[in-house]
Amino acid sequence: MNIITIENVCKNYKTKKALDNVSLTIKKGELFGLLGVNGAGKTTLIKILCGLTYKTSGTIMINNFNLDKEIDKIKEIIDISPQETSVANNLTVKENLEFFANIYNNNNANTVNKIVDIFNLNEVVNQRAKTLSGGYKRRLSIAIALISKPKILFLDEPTLGLDVFARRELWNIIKKLQKDITIILTSHYLEEIENLCDRVAILSNGKLLKTGTIKELKQMTKAKSFEDAFIKLVEAKSE
């Protein structure tokens, strides 16, 4: 069953065509990857899906709600961990989680403790967010997105700027997240997409080049590695 259907979506900023006729479907429960180099249009697509910016044209259905008409209903079932680790800096880890839980009337000790456990935040639970290391801050940012118990979770460049250890740890956490959430993850790290995602869409210059599993994309391009497949697809388009 498709939980997100994107049809012919375009987005023009004043000076830039950021999305060019993108069509895509995402299935319920899958971990879907949006892969593309910097400036490909990943964040723009995520922002449109979350109602943070308007699309120029096209239709989007999320969980059978029309984005243009029922954005309020959509906001109840989605959450986003933005590319920037946006947390309340002067609140502690726990206060951050409680604050966001309250928005969704989800604030009980159980929910918060469970999330703290899943994300291994026990050590820093009473520390103010601004004093956290990059890895912890990212984890908090993603933990916050999960506290609303969303049906759909958007992770925009979740491991940007992390060292290898923090990245591995985060990968493990993402893999363990329960399977009834649909996760849309953007990244420009090939190994991240390869490691985590069930299916991938490759974005380049605002255009969607191909969608499929890693295996399918490799077969399609007769490439040995995913990296080769990616490069072939992007180069074929720009020629």
Binding site: G51, L52, K75, D79, P82, E84, S86, Y104, I144
Partner: peptide, 13 residues
Amino acid sequence: QTFFLKRLYSSPM
């Protein structure tokens, strides 16, 4: 600036 508001804009607030 810290995108804290952006994130809240995607919530039911």
